[in-house]
Design a protein around this nucleic acid. Structure first.
Length: 519
RNA sequence: GCCCCCAUCGUCUAGUGGCCUAGGAUACCGGCCUUUCAAGCCGGAGACAUGGAUUCAAAUUCCGUUGGGGGCACCA
């Protein structure tokens, strides 16, 4: 595991260097008195993706653990694909997950605005500066021309990279042409090796000849992504950039831009990407990808965050279930792994179950209720609160998500005489059916009420009755279940009796016996 | 194609040269429990990609190979 070694060496060098300067110790990160500033910068071109949520969570955990500020910045320069609805989804989803920010488009902050679309002048200013300093140049090649030249090069089997045609244009001519011809501005990539300091991967060295002169200002006057990001990270004083692996090569461009703008680059951490079962970047063809999808499906936010945190990270012991608070105190960058992470819904389901287990019946019932309303189950909504809580308690062990509770609870809305074919069949093949029915009804009538005691007494009594007759307990209890619910599966008998009361259960059994002629 | 990143059970991971006949979790299979479905408990199967090198000793260090991923846009 090369990465482990490199990361640890780098981390220890990093802290040693800093600590020596300050003369004090900090276990992981130390910015020489500057406070930590991290950012999460999604582009509102879709709902908050699980992978982005993981990035946001990583940033949040680090900053809440180490102290510092968390900045939310919207990278909405793509006017066509960006939309306010997606922006809202991102904000709602982050909040739902328990991720909060100290500065952002909704709450402002000392470096506002926090939407790139509102910062264009700032970018143009810096682009002009680069242009004046000869670190950038105008490119008059039209998209069609570029396409044409690219096609020719590719046809010869050579890799295409911008050919610097416009770099040859003399300064005066460039300025003259600028008045009459549309142009974009490209960054003039300097020669030499570029080093990206990455907390996870050590120092990544790339020769700048690998990088083409990229666009920093489009011909329509909008700044390019790389330029906007760098100007923002400088002006917002971001000193740690945690983002996906897919930006590692961009980091090389960014490092060059920081240098060109006379700014120290932040420290980077490029985490591995979230992948689907087949190993490709997680996308809709693998599973639902939006955080809001999981919210709607009845996952607990704490479970989703817990699961996401466990990809590429472990506490170093066998513990796996953490609340958000526990994650903040346990999370440590030193234990983050650089290897890939495949999304596994089974594990998420299990973790969700573990989180639901920790909830009281009362809280769980409260969380289930909205799912019933959304499902439009009127009958379930009519159940009075105490009964509802009881009903939820009776199904909680059976469900993996909150929404699954709805279908499980439906058993409590069945009419007294309703029965499934399967249940009828089971009853009809029971020997001494009439007698067993009578035994059940008698036990129910002799113990009126709906308390747990009553329910337990009834079931216990029926067990003894079966034993006395030399039957298995199943012979009687199976009929009791089918008689009360009309279904072959369902909650524990104790709960059924408590829910309907022994009188109610007796009525339900009689209704079925009469209407379906069970003898 | 070029550049970069990654590589332990199907999946998530523990593992920093001897505690490793590789540990845990999940999923899977079997058993127990049991009125059903679950849950729970017990057990089983299941991995160091590969070839070299260093070393008394390598999952762990180094090099090559293979495989996977990402990037190479007037997208972000």
């Amino acid at each position: 595991m090369t990465h482990t070694r490199r990361r640890r060496e780098f981390l220890s060098n990093f802290s040693r260097e800093r600590n020596a300067r300050r003369g004090e110790a900090n276990p992981v990160l130390d910015f020489s008195g500057e406070s930590l500033r991290v950012r999460f910068a999604p582009s509102p071109t879709g709902k908050l993706h699980l992978g982005s949520a993981r990035t946001a969570l990583l940033n949040w955990l680090v900053v809440r653990r180490e102290g510092g500020k968390f900045v939310l910045r919207l990278e909405d320069t793509d006017v066509v694909r960006s939309s306010p609805e997606f922006e809202q989804d991102i904000i709602d989803s982050l909040k739902w997950m328990g991720i909060d920010w100290d500065e952002g488009p909704d709450i402002g902050g000392p470096f506002a605005p926090y939407r790139q679309s509102e910062r264009m002048d700032l970018y143009r200013e810096q682009v002009s500066r680069l242009l004046e300093e000869g670190k950038a140049y105008r490119c008059f090649c039209s998209p069609d021309e570029l396409e044409e030249r690219k096609r020719k090069v590719v046809a010869q089997g050579k890799p295409w990279r911008y050919d610097r045609k416009c770099l040859e244009i003399p300064q005066e001519e460039s300025e003259r042409l600028a008045a009459s011809k549309p142009f974009a501005i490209r960054f003039r990539v300097p020669e030499g090796k570029v080093v990206v300091k990455d907390l996870l991967r050590g120092e990544v060295v790339v020769d700048s000849s690998e990088i083409a002169d990229f666009i920093i200002l489009r011909s329509d006057g909008r700044a390019g992504f790389n330029m906007a990001v760098v100007v923002d990270d400088i002006t917002m004083k971001v000193n740690l950039v945690i983002r996906g692996d897919d930006h590692l090569t961009n980091a090389v461009r960014h490092a060059m831009l920081f240098e060109a703008l006379d700014s120290a680059p932040p420290l980077f951490l490029h985490h591995s990407l979230l992948l689907g079962k087949d190993g490709a970047k997680l996308s809709k063809r693998h599973a639902a990808t939006a955080v809001s999808d999981y919210r709607e499906r009845g996952y607990l936010s704490s479970a989703l965050a817990n699961y996401l945190s466990l990809l590429s990270w472990s506490p170093g012991d066998d513990r796996e279930i953490f609340t958000m608070e526990e994650l903040v105190s346990e999370f440590n960058l030193k234990r983050l792994s650089a290897s890939r992470a495949i999304f596994d819904i089974d594990k998420l389901n299990w973790i969700n179950r573990q989180h639901m287990k920790k909830l009281s019946n009362d809280s769980l019932a409260g969380l289930v209720r909205p799912f019933i309303e959304k499902a439009g189950e009127k009958e379930l909504q009519k159940i009075p609160p105490e009964k509802f809580e009881l009903a939820v308690e009776s199904v909680r062990e059976k469900i993996e998500t909150l929404s699954e509770a709805v279908e499980q609870l439906l058993i409590y809305t069945k009419k007294p005489d309703e029965i499934t074919d399967k249940a009828l069949e089971e009853l009809r093949k029971t020997s001494d059916l009439d007698e067993v029915f009578d035994i059940c009804l008698e036990a129910l009538r002799e113990n009126p009420g709906s308390s747990r005691d009553v329910a337990e007494r009834i079931v216990k009594g029926l067990r003894e009755e079966a034993k006395a007759r030399g039957w298995g307990a199943k012979k009687i209890l199976w009929v009791l279940r089918l008689g009360i619910t009309g279904h072959v599966i369902g909650p524990d008998l104790i709960y059924l009796i408590m829910f309907w009361g022994s009188e109610g259960c007796a009525e339900r059994m009689e209704a079925k016996r009469r209407i379906h002629e069970l003898h």
